[in-house]
């Protein structure tokens, strides 16, 4: 049996209670919304690029511990990365969540590894990936329609 303590690790609870980089960003290069119609979780990601570098990254929204902590950890991990690195990290994280070992192999997800317990709770994977899908949409241009997890 998977242990709830693996899912709700201290780091996750901490980022849930005190999310980092929470709020709107001004000025902004692109933003994108993620919406999970199943539960109503909603996240908006604000992205500011400096050339090809992610200079600013924040988020807003209401969600569960998993989606909030994942968004918060994402902003910390992605800020400062060059676009190709950011895209690679998104791919690695999504691969980790979907249990696609090949994709994640070799990638050092660092602190994001605390979210790896989520993959044992299939219905919660969408919570963890919501902000990441929104970030990917923002990097691709953003400001279009909300991405949904469906």
């Amino acid at each position: 049996m998977s242990d709830l303590r693996d899912l709700y690790q201290q780091v996750i609870l901490d980022h849930y209670r005190a999310p980092r980089n929470f709020g709107a960003l001004e000025p902004v290069s692109a933003c994108a919304e993620g919406y999970n119609p199943l539960c109503g979780d909603q996240v908006k990601v604000y992205l500011r690029m400096d050339g090809d570098r992610v200079e600013g990254l924040t988020f807003e929204g209401v969600g569960c511990a998993i989606s909030t902590a994942s968004a918060s950890l994402m902003t910390e991990a992605v800020r400062g990365l060059e676009r190709p690195q950011a895209e690679a990290l998104i791919a690695s994280f999504l691969a980790l969540m979907t249990g696609d070992g090949n994709g994640a192999a070799g990638a050092d997800l660092g602190k994001l590894e605390v979210l790896s317990g989520v993959k044992d709770y299939p219905v919660r994977i969408k919570c963890a990936t919501l902000a990441w899908h929104a970030l990917r949409a923002a990097l691709e241009g953003g400001d279009s329609e909300a991405v949904t997890t469906e």
Partner: peptide, 30 residues
């Protein structure tokens, strides 16, 4: 207090308890 319904549902499910978390298809009511 301090726990989102989804997290509550997961923790209850681990204990074999099936409840519903969400907006219950009644978003205007929520």
């Amino acid at each position: 207090d301090g726990a989102h319904p989804h997290d509550v549902a997961t923790i209850l499910d681990e204990q074999g308890i099936a409840i519903r978390a969400g907006h219950h298809c009644a978003q205007p009511l929520m």
